[in-house]
Design a protein around this nucleic acid. Structure first.
Length: 117
DNA sequence: TCCTTGACCATTA
DNA sequence: ATAATGGCCAAGG
């Protein structure tokens, strides 16, 4: 057959996999996800996919802009929902922004290394 | 093909 | 800290 199944392209799968790997209570950026997926400079694709694959119930609330700010407009419903979901899992959101120094994914590594020393 | 559209990003002013 | 700018790149029309 001509692959009638609109299977998920490898690039998409890689990105979705990274998104699913973000620990609860932690956040990361569109660009970082792209890099981890082996697709540097594809931050915009990450955002596109979050919307396209919304049916997969991904932890989209853990994805923020590179500076820690929520990508949606301040007054939008999406903005409020993301803020709520983050707070719900213990991530502090002040002025639509999350302190990546405290909740940024990968910061966990430093934490572990710290504990080891 | 060409053109437009983004849940982006880094730099500069 | 905020805003403009140029760059980025997959999708869709």
């Amino acid at each position: 057959m001509k692959s009638g199944t609109a299977s998920i392209p490898p690039a998409h799968a890689a990105i979705l996999g990274v998104i699913r790997a973000i620990p609860r209570g932690k956040v990361t950026s569109y660009g970082e996800i792209a890099r981890r997926a082996g697709l540097p400079r594809h931050a915009r694709l990450v955002g596109r996919l979050l919307g396209d694959y919304s049916a997969l119930k991904l932890p989209w609330q853990r994805v923020l802009r590179a500076d820690g700010r929520i990508a949606f407009a301040r007054g939008s419903a999406a903005f409020r929902e993301q803020r709520m979901r983050l707070i719900e899992e213990g991530v502090a959101v002040a002025n639509g922004r999350v302190d990546l120094g405290r909740f940024g994914w990968q910061r966990d590594l430093d934490e572990q290394l710290w504990r080891m020393a």
